[in-house]
Design a protein around this nucleic acid. Structure first.
Length: 417
RNA sequence: GGUAGGUUGGCAGAGUGGUCGAAUGCGCCACCUUGGAAAGGUGGUUAGCGAGUAAUCGUUACAAGGGUUCGAAUCCCUUACCUACCUCCA
């Protein structure tokens, strides 16, 4: 959520910045509501003060006549305050709801553009070998280590069953990723996979993106779309001491996404599933350090791809391609030989104080309290890593497991027999 | 699912109708003391909103919402959550 005061004080800057990401700010609406809100508050507080004086004087008054008079005055004020209260409540709901739907301001360093075509390439790492053109789905189906049919039978499309060595490899990837992050001082967490709407509003999935989530019927609960939600919400409504920063967390969780509006996309393979696993990195930091933290978290995500020796590229998202809550984002895109292109495998974002305003996470420095900055990055999406590994490490006869995974497995290759 | 009890400031924990935004202790901060530190002493230390350059002032908040009352942390109702025991269960 943006700072209302900042919008009111710098209306032109804010609306220009939002325009670069394609959002048109309704400034007059916000100004009107804020103005009206202020007036009502002042009136209401004036009356509340009067009322307090009356209540107070009650003790020193003894005659019944006086008491009667005070009571009737008090009643009159009550009625007025009641009216003001209810209109203030309505007004704040409207204003707040409006603010919750405004995306974050892009950082000034973001490349300006309309879509992913305008993203800027930062670096390419590990040139693709480009020998294999077989899709991971075909490779795994030929050795019966994946079943799309069974996923459909059990649930519906976009659910899958992994088996045998591939299931182990999937698990090994998770262990490898977590171990790497733990070595770099990220604290491992095991968190709930179901969360409430307050948590989702805090991190920005609600109220705007409810259709992307799986909601549990007859409840106010949802399946998590990413571990970012439970991890970041651990700190909701907290004032952290400066000593507590930075908070560095990691967790492996399944992620559930309805993938509304992506019916035709990536129908083959395991790239786009309703349920997938991800190892997530989250940092909560001092505002002065968040730019550096974004570089660090991106580097940490990259290190996984480096160690797996997969070809990938780093892209900085342009203003038009930024996620709703993000101020600045690097995507890591891994090479898929069968598709002859790079596909997103990690997204590392600095949210600035956008989430911490919604979540009410502050830190205390000397006497000052301020909103922290929050960041997260996938480190990495496990299903996509698995798929990329299968394709990139396939030599036509076997899948050669990268050596960093050997200690988590009791095989070094998966033969196509 | 049943029964009982609970939810107060960073923590612990008082407070059963006005003088309570809230005792006390711990923690934390500042100052005094010291060569420096510890101990000791003194003072300070909840948050949101509104006004003000500021000091500060006003207002709101004792799980949430509603009610009684001139006045509610305190009385009543509803909901949520927590704890214990019982039941069941990986």
């Amino acid at each position: 959520m943006l700072d209302l005061k900042n919008i009111l004080n710098n209306p032109q800057d804010v609306s220009n910045a939002l325009l670069t990401r394609g959002y048109e700010l309704d400034l007059s609406f916000i100004e009107d509501k804020a103005q009206e809100r202020k007036k009502i508050i002042q009136k209401k507080e004036q009356l509340a003060g009067d009322k307090n004086i009356i209540s107070d004087s009650f003790r020193t008054v003894s005659s019944d006549e006086e008491k009667e008079k005070l009571m009737s005055q008090s009643k009159k004020i009550d009625d007025e305050v009641q009216l003001l209260k209810s209109s203030l409540e309505k007004l704040e709901d409207v204003l707040n709801d409006h603010l919750l739907h405004i995306p974050n301001l892009p950082h000034s360093s973001c490349p300006i553009g309309d879509s992913d075509k305008d993203n800027s390439l930062i670096e390419k790492v590990n040139e693709p070998k480009g020998v294999n053109t077989k899709e991971h789905a075909d490779i795994l189906e030929s050795i019966q280590m994946i079943s799309f049919g069974e996923g459909v039978k059990i649930t519906q499309s976009r659910f899958v069953v992994l088996k045998d060595k591939v299931a182990s490899l999937h698990r090994a990837l998770i262990n490898f990723m977590l171990s790497s992050h733990i070595k770099k001082k990220y604290i491992e967490h095991n968190v709930p996979y179901i969360c409430n709407s307050a948590s989702l509003t805090g991190t920005g999935q609600l109220p705007k993106f409810e259709e992307d989530l799986f909601k549990i019927s007859n409840s106010n609960l949802y399946l998590i779309p990413t571990a970012e939600v439970p991890l970041t919400n651990i700190y909701r409504d907290m004032i952290l001491s400066i000593k507590d920063l930075p908070v560095m967390m990691t967790a492996h969780t399944p992620c559930f996404r309805s993938e509304a509006g992506s019916y035709g996309l990536d129908t083959k393979g395991i790239i786009r599933q309703h349920q997938f696993e991800k190892v997530e990195l989250v940092q909560i930091v001092h505002p002065d350090h968040s730019q550096q933290a974004l570089e660090d978290i991106t580097l940490q995500a990259r290190s996984i791809l480096d160690e797996l020796e997969l070809p990938y590229q780093i892209v900085e998202l342009c203003t038009g391609d930024l996620g709703f809550s993000s101020q600045k984002t690097y995507d890591l895109e891994v090479w898929f030989p069968s598709q002859d292109k790079y596909r997103e495998i990690s997204s590392c974002s600095n949210f600035g104080d956008f989430q911490s305003r919604r979540l009410n996470i502050k830190f205390k420095e000397d006497k000052e309290k301020n909103f922290v900055h929050t960041l997260n990055g996938s480190g990495l999406a496990v299903g996509r890593t698995l798929a990329a590994l299968i394709e990139n490490c396939f030599d036509g006869k076997q899948i050669i497991i990268p050596s960093v995974l050997h200690k988590y497995l009791d095989f070094k290759t998966i033969e196509l027999s």
